[in-house]
């Protein structure tokens, strides 16, 4: 090996002349991360510091979801955390699973699970109606 460059180590090299997907994915992690600092840390503080999860009951959630604003907040948190987490796990899998077949299986299971949970979460947020 001559002229070892830093990129010789990279496992997520884009095809030469290929797309900028990895660049956009990198940038997305920074932007979504910034939003998630507000959304996820905000959610944690609302649930665990300003309120206490011991007081969490059906009425608490129903009252929150009476306003479209909290449903929007929760949906943004759901969407961004699933996208941010899925991309993070995609990178971890690329870096740590050397076998190509195992890697493909892991990645496709990840995409399937993430899509299913995104659909489930979105359905709950849209379909919830208070039972009185």
């Amino acid at each position: 090996m001559q002229n070892t460059t830093r990129t010789d180590w990279g496992r997520r090299q884009p095809p030469i002349g290929g797309s900028n997907f990895e660049l956009y994915a990198w940038f997305f992690m920074r932007v979504s991360g910034l939003f998630l600092v507000l959304l996820a840390a905000g959610h944690m503080f609302i649930m665990h510091v300003f309120n206490d999860t011991l007081n969490l009951d059906y009425e608490f959630v129903a009252a929150r979801w009476d306003t479209p604003y909290w449903r929007t907040f929760d949906w943004l948190l759901l969407a961004l955390s699933i996208l941010h987490g899925t991309n993070g796990l995609r990178i971890v899998m690329h870096d740590n699973i050397a076998n190509k077949l195992h890697r493909s299986l892991a990645l496709y299971s990840l995409y399937f699970v993430s899509t299913a949970f995104f659909v489930l979460g979105t359905y709950v947020l849209v379909a919830f109606v208070r039972q009185s």
């Binding site: 059906y58 959630v61 699933i82 699970v113 949970f117 979460g121 709950v124 919830f128």
Partner: peptide, 15 residues
């Protein structure tokens, strides 16, 4: 996150 989505989804099943 996945566990949390499941436990919250149970709210559709009622109080």
């Amino acid at each position: 996150l996945l566990l949390h989505i499941i436990s919250t989804a149970l709210i559709l099943a009622g109080p």
